[in-house]
Design a protein around this nucleic acid. Sequence first.
DNA 1: GACACTGCTGAATCCATGA
DNA 2: ATCATGGATTCAGCAGTGT
Lengths: 375, 375
Amino acid sequence: MRMRSNVSLRSDFDQTEAGLADRLDTIMKGDCVAQLEKLPKHSVDAIFADPPYNLQLGGGLTRPDQSEVDGVTDAWDQFESFEAYDAFTRAWLLACKRVLKPNGTIWVIGSYHNIFRVGAIMQDINFWLLNDVVWMKTNPMPNFRGKRFTNAHETMIWASRDKSSKYTFNYEALKAFNDDVQMRSDWTLPICTGHERLKGDDGKKVHPTQKPESLLYRVLLSSTNPGDVVLDPFFGTGTTGAVAKKLGRHFIGVERDRDYIAAAQARIDAVEPVDLDALKTTQSKRAAPRIPFGRLLEEGLLKPGVELTDKRGKFSAMVRADGSLVSGSHTGSIHKVGALVQGLDACNGWTYWHFDKDGAQEPIDSLRQIIRDAA
Amino acid sequence: MRMRSNVSLRSDFDQTEAGLADRLDTIMKGDCVAQLEKLPKHSVDAIFADPPYNLQLGGGLTRPDQSEVDGVTDAWDQFESFEAYDAFTRAWLLACKRVLKPNGTIWVIGSYHNIFRVGAIMQDINFWLLNDVVWMKTNPMPNFRGKRFTNAHETMIWASRDKSSKYTFNYEALKAFNDDVQMRSDWTLPICTGHERLKGDDGKKVHPTQKPESLLYRVLLSSTNPGDVVLDPFFGTGTTGAVAKKLGRHFIGVERDRDYIAAAQARIDAVEPVDLDALKTTQSKRAAPRIPFGRLLEEGLLKPGVELTDKRGKFSAMVRADGSLVSGSHTGSIHKVGALVQGLDACNGWTYWHFDKDGAQEPIDSLRQIIRDAA
DNA sequence: GACACTGCTGAATCCATGA
DNA sequence: ATCATGGATTCAGCAGTGT
């Protein structure tokens, strides 16, 4: 009976699980658009995509980089080239959008060669851009010819599936991570070198653009929860999978190249997941169960008739038995009266109102915390 | 004879001069596409454009203290759709391309709201992208609701008129400016505040998005020469003109708003050109990037789940994946938990917390040093 | 004069839930 | 779908005032 009840409650999830069960934590071999068709609609929580920008499409018709511009015929040719890249981009982004859950988010990384086209198409197909995040490389390749600025960064676009998506953003966790100031849109991280860089038997790097795990660590920590399913349609050597496993997320990879797949699989197999307790991250107050102000009276933490004041004692109000406040002609909730006495539109009564504790002013929020801690 | 010879060599320039003479160092009033038609083809050396960003702001936004954020809701930033914005963008970019010299370059600044569309259109009409340069703001507006990363940067696209352009890039000057290392594609500069920010008689900002002179200083220093003509089709309050005059470049501004024009003119009139030899004095040191505690986890120097203690092993805490610590009922950053366990108001977690290194206690600060040394 | 303290502000696509 | 309401949320820097 209990089982049934759970199944019933989680039918949506289970349906997804059924469709994904044999794909979870595996690498699908093949073209990403074709492979994504095998996944159920609305089945993954997040996507990280590192698409090629120097790609050869089917007939080898693309020159994704800009071609010579010297007259009308070349302009047409170039249009063909951009058009092919745009068509490719639109196709895989649409395929991603189909499998992404309504509240899911997608990350796409690129450079100035392709990121503008990618971003514009994402907007065109109604992804809702949340941030562009700049990865500044501490150790970029210098510009040898001295004709341009050292190309020292790459750009990631973070977007939700729709404008109305209620997406995951672990704000407090990132703030804790960042020494108690909110995380910015510019991240300074080294490129992938040393032991982390996968090398073949010949000592050569397996993949030309292997991303550092530190980058994916931050991506997954910020926008996914433990147990989430993360899709990477251009899996490469599996940085997304390795970090997902480490952080207790599921991954699904799609990759065409068998050598990359082999390297990625071996790499992921060697990853040790972190301990479950260590995966719990700093929670927001929003996630905490709501405690109405009246509970403080029920618990005897405050008595009806007691006087509350703002921090400086400028305004005062009396607590009534039903948990409403009275201040002059103003009555209502702690929030409403707090706003009214200040002449503001809104107010957080929990932090605004204080009670007298041994002669000192203490916010009533500390009383709420007592109840939360006891639970 | 010598004169003739010079004229012959510089005929292009002289023709330009004739057509531009009465426009140099002036502000043209009106719509930028219409005004640019008045300029000769191939007549300006460089362009800096700060077009509307098409922000599409929703309702009001308040800070945590309930004060209202003065958002950019001006009519000039309103567009009906992406299509309308694209048409506008294409039109002014084409107009710019016509007046730009074959070897000229253009800078366009924007945010994630518009920059992807701008960049894609620039590629479509055969501008040749040279760099995207990220302006990281030292003091950006925070994210007040904790729903996204702090939007802490803007993006500039730098492009030559054609792929074959022999454009100006003052590599050596920039390198000298940057303490003898190549100038990178990420620039850290404060936003325009304080006395530099133009204010009206009412004390309010004249323009909602005035750019800092330091930004234009680098732009013009890197990609123009003294005597060059710099066009700004969205002149606003004339930062481009002010810096151009200061650096011995000519400017041409186009602006629709008479109030902006008046403010810009007065501002520019007050500018004193600098002695170019003295430029080096204004160079800025690149501050070492801050390394947050979370970086130690990303780098694998500490693993989530590991235990930290104070020097004497009196208190201990567990590290979680987001870089927060747990010690009994206390959770938070290394600094916060360090303070809490000691019952203090503040604590430097870097020196307080130690990890076990071969049986000895070593402060976590030594791990941070490893990252600093590697960079 | 130095320093502490308060107040203000910046290109922002900035809430969630239940009735 | 709309509407009301509970209550969560900020960093760096400059200007002005006061001690």
